[in-house]
């Protein structure tokens, strides 16, 4: 818990090496911390700071700006019901109420068994399927109150396990590519090619 360990530590070090400035890895690494622990722990913040050469306060300052990062345990499934304009016009608020009564918790809270956290969310760009629901950032819609209860049932029975990983896991496809080309090398090569082209153009003019 907390600090990256094992396979995740290897991944974290790779991510930190992807940018000309390692601080660019702060957000991806916070996602990785959530993948490990479900939320961004204080230990993870300290570890991320070490990996990118920032202070813990700087990492915390960045992370706390973003809605997707949680700083205390949340449910195994974070369920977002969109109530923004396009979903509202098609029953988003009614669905949020139904979701709340199905789960027995108001928006913003987690069920006592730790299975579900319910959130009211802003537009999730699924507006043609309004009202839309996201579960651990996997999209469903249009969803009505019966459909919502059914989804919850499927989550409880494990039927959707393959489709929806536990909270915190975003993209399951990892970068599979050769090491990055140093930007200095690309800059030098471009300067050389630009020079060649200019010389060719100049010799044509003569």
């Amino acid at each position: 818990m907390g600090r990256f360990e094992g396979e995740l530590l290897v991944r974290a070090e790779k991510v930190a090496g992807l940018y000309p400035d390692p601080r660019s890895a702060i957000i991806p690494l916070c996602h990785l911390a959530q993948e490990q622990d479900g939320y961004v722990t204080e230990e993870a913040i300290a570890h991320i700071a070490e990996l990118v050469g920032a202070t813990g306060a700087e990492v915390q300052g960045t992370a706390s700006f973003y809605d997707m990062f949680k700083f205390e345990p949340v449910g195994e499934y974070v369920i977002g019901v969109c109530t923004n304009i396009s979903c509202m016009l098609r029953g988003g608020y009614g669905l949020l109420e139904a979701a709340s009564s199905t789960l027995g918790v108001p928006p913003g809270e987690t069920t006592p068994d730790g299975m579900f956290t319910l959130e009211e969310v802003e537009c999730v760009a699924h507006c043609d399927k309004a009202p839309a629901v996201q579960i651990n950032y996997r999209y469903f819609g249009p969803v009505d109150s019966e459909g919502f209860a059914e989804l919850v049932g499927q989550l409880r029975s494990g039927e959707l396990d393959g489709q929806i990983p536990k909270h915190g896991t975003l993209g399951r496809v990892l970068r599979d590519a050769p090491p990055l080309i140093p930007v200095e090398e690309i800059d030098a090569e471009r300067a050389r090619q630009d020079g060649e082209r200019e010389a060719r153009a100049a010799s044509r003019e003569v």
Binding site: Y139, L170, R175, A177
Partner: peptide, 26 residues
């Protein structure tokens, strides 16, 4: 010198698909 595709974090499937496309391209 470098290109970055910044995708909305909530696009979990989009992140997978674009990463796959990047991996394929390499």
């Amino acid at each position: 010198s470098l290109a970055v595709i910044y995708l909305r974090g909530e696009f979990a499937l989009g992140l997978e698909r674009v990463q796959e496309a990047i991996n394929d391209a390499y």
